[in-house]
Simulated assay, not measured.
Amino acid sequence: MGTRGRGRRRAPARGGPWLGAAAAFLLVAVAVFAYFVVRGDRHSSAAEPASPTPVGSASRACTPTAATTPRATPLPRADAFAAGGKHAAPIDVRVTVLNGSGTFGQAESVLSWLQNDRHFLRASNGGPAAHTQAATSLVYAPVHVDQARTLVAALGLPESALHATGKDRSATGRMVLTLGQDFHGIGKPFAAPVPTASVGTGCGGS
Rank of each mutant, 00 (worst) to 15 (best):
T63L: 14
C62Q: 08
R94L: 06
S51D: 12
I91M: 02
P64D: 08
F81V: 04
A61W: 12
D92V: 01
A58E: 14
A72T: 12
A61D: 15
P76A: 09
P70K: 04
C62Y: 03
V55H: 10
K86R: 12
R60L: 10
A89H: 12
T73F: 09
D41R: 11
R60M: 06
R71T: 15
P70L: 03
C62H: 09
A46K: 05
S45W: 10
S59G: 11
P70D: 04
S45T: 07
T73D: 13
G56T: 03
L75M: 08
G84F: 11
L75T: 04
G56H: 07
C62S: 08
I91A: 09
S59M: 12
A88W: 00
G84T: 15
R60Y: 03
A58R: 14
S57K: 06
S57C: 04
P76H: 03
D41L: 11
R42D: 06
R94Q: 09
V93I: 02
G85L: 07
A61C: 15
A72C: 09
R94V: 02
T65G: 13
A58S: 13
S44C: 00
R77V: 14
P90N: 06
R94P: 00
A82H: 10
A67R: 14
P70S: 02
T73K: 12
D92P: 01
G56K: 06
A80G: 11
S45D: 12
V93Y: 00
E48L: 08
T69L: 15
F81W: 05
P49A: 02
H87A: 09
A61N: 15
A58F: 14
P74M: 06
P76I: 01
E48R: 13
P76Q: 08
P54K: 05
T69P: 03
S57V: 10
P70F: 01
G84S: 15
T68G: 14
P52G: 08
G84I: 05
R42S: 03
A82N: 13
C62W: 07
T68C: 07
A88Q: 02
H87C: 05
T53G: 02
D79F: 03
G85K: 04
E48M: 05
A46R: 05
G85N: 07
S51E: 13
A83D: 13
T65K: 15
S44H: 02
L75K: 08
S44D: 07
R60P: 00
A67I: 12
D92T: 01
